[in-house]
Lab assay of single mutants.
Amino acid sequence: LSQDQINEYKECFSLYDKQQRGKIKATDLMVAMRCLGASPTPGEVQRHLQTHGIDGNGELDFSTFLTIMHMQIKQE
């Protein structure tokens, strides 16, 4: 990932990090990914979360979000 991409991801991540705690809700993951041009299915989002041990009510930090985005873009 280039620095530009990382900055773009950070900007989008921040939109969903409403309390500015450095985390977004798992329920916002799909929308955040789509905001960056990825098109994950609900099943793919579920798999990404399970891979990282996050349940549907959990939260993920930016580095986890980056990893998930990277995996998603590689497979699209």
Rank of each mutant, 00 (worst) to 15 (best):
F13A: 00
V45I: 04
A26I: 05
D61Q: 02
K23H: 10
A32H: 01
E44S: 15
L66W: 07
Q50I: 15
F62Y: 08
M69E: 01
S63Y: 02
Q19F: 05
Q3T: 10
S39L: 05
M69I: 13
C12A: 15
F65A: 03
R21P: 02
C12Y: 12
A38M: 14
E59D: 01
L15Y: 13
K18N: 06
Q3S: 06
Q20A: 07
E76C: 10
M30F: 08
E11P: 02
V31M: 13
K10H: 14
T27M: 12
Q20R: 11
M69D: 00
G22T: 02
R21C: 07
Q5Y: 07
V31A: 11
R47G: 01
A26N: 04
N7P: 06
I6Q: 13
D28E: 10
M30S: 14
I6E: 11
S63D: 09
A32F: 02
D28V: 06
L29K: 00
E11F: 07
F13C: 01
Q19M: 12
Y9I: 14
F62E: 07
L66I: 11
L49F: 03
G22W: 02
G43P: 12
F62D: 01
I68Y: 01
S63L: 07
R21G: 08
E76S: 12
E76D: 07
T27K: 10
A26Q: 04
L49W: 05
A38T: 14
D61S: 11
R34Y: 04
N57P: 15
T27I: 07
E76Q: 15
G53C: 02
C35H: 10
F65G: 01
R34N: 15
G58E: 11
G58T: 12
S39N: 15
Q3A: 09
A26Y: 03
D61G: 10
C35R: 14
Y16M: 08
G22I: 00
T27Q: 11
E44V: 07
K74P: 09
I6H: 06
N57V: 05
L66Q: 15
L49Q: 15
I68D: 00
M33A: 06
L49K: 04
N57E: 09
Q19Y: 06
K23W: 11
S39F: 05
N57R: 14
D28C: 09
L29R: 00
R21H: 08
I73F: 04
N57G: 14
L49R: 03
S2V: 06
K10Y: 07
S63R: 05
A38W: 14
A32I: 12
L66F: 03
A32S: 06
Y9A: 14
G37C: 05
E59N: 15
E76K: 08
Q3L: 07
G56C: 09
V31C: 09
K25F: 12
M69H: 06
D17C: 04
G22E: 06
G43D: 09
L29P: 00
K74R: 03
Y9S: 07
K10T: 09
K74N: 14
S2Y: 08
D28L: 04
G56T: 04
E59F: 02
D61L: 05
T27Y: 11
F65S: 04
E44G: 04
Q5H: 07
I6Y: 10
Q3I: 12
I24N: 01
A38R: 13
Y16N: 04
R21K: 13
V31K: 09
E8Y: 11
D17I: 01
D61P: 14
C35Y: 12
M33W: 01
A38V: 14
L49M: 08
K25I: 07
N7L: 10
R34C: 14
Q3R: 10
T41I: 11
L60Q: 00
K10F: 10
V31G: 14
E59Y: 03
E11R: 14
S2I: 08
N57C: 08
C35A: 14
Y9Q: 04
T27D: 13
A38E: 15
S39R: 06
M33D: 00
I54V: 09
L60K: 00
Y9T: 09
E11Y: 10
L60F: 07
L29T: 04
K23M: 11
K18I: 09
T64A: 15
Q5I: 12
